[in-house]
Amino acid sequence: MNIFVLVKRTFDTEEKIVIANGKIQDDGAEYIINPYDEYAIEEAIQLRDANSGKVTVVTIGGEDAEKQLRTALAMGADEAVLINTEDDLDELDQYSTAVILAEYLKDKEVDLILAGNVAIDGGTGQVGPRVADLLGINYVTTITDLEIDGTNVKIVRDIEGDSEVIETSLPLLVTAQQGLNEPRYPSLPGIMKAKKKPLAELELDDLDIDEDDVEVKVETVDVYLPPQKAAGRVLEGELADQVKELVNLLHSEAKVV
């Protein structure tokens, strides 16, 4: 099976956001593979091990994203591709990201593409379905179970807490929801092997993409932090009285019940 995984380098979930000059500051920030993409990588590795084939992880970004690709290779992916847009593009949106990925994937005879259902930074969840549409293949989002038998695919997907059981077929793009699997940590031998695995670097020229074709559709005007909340009130006294007071405050002061 020819499997591709779309991954994104994101801030570690522990990171606090600092803004200066209308931009999010990344000096010294720790980066990780977007957590939902880890489920996608894990699922891809398990599918390859069960069906044979190859897992290629793909990301768009700068040189720094090589680290996350090496981590994916250490988990067990076979090859990695970095589409480096650092020199060509100042900004990317979901439209341009999807166009670039689809250009790369269009002649790869893909059986299955996996991605996270959302990235924890931008949080749009658009890129997976957009890529599938550009490639003309079907997609299923927020999956929690995946079974493949030949080209037949059985999927369970999460729809707001309920589960939908779906049948479809390859080629297909799926996006991973939490609960799909338990992503492995890279092993020490895995990390050693990853250093020798192929990691290709491409630029827009290599994909025959003109900068004008990937001009962003959405423009960011401002970035800011949510208003700081004033310190709350910790109630005191007998527990029963606190409970009465709380209900009273929620009813009369906060007016939410």
Binding site: I19, K217, V218, E219, T220, D222, V223, Y224
Partner: peptide
């Protein structure tokens, strides 16, 4: 954080 955006 929040962002303020518009369609170009």
């Amino acid at each position: 954080a929040f962002e303020k955006v518009k369609i170009k």
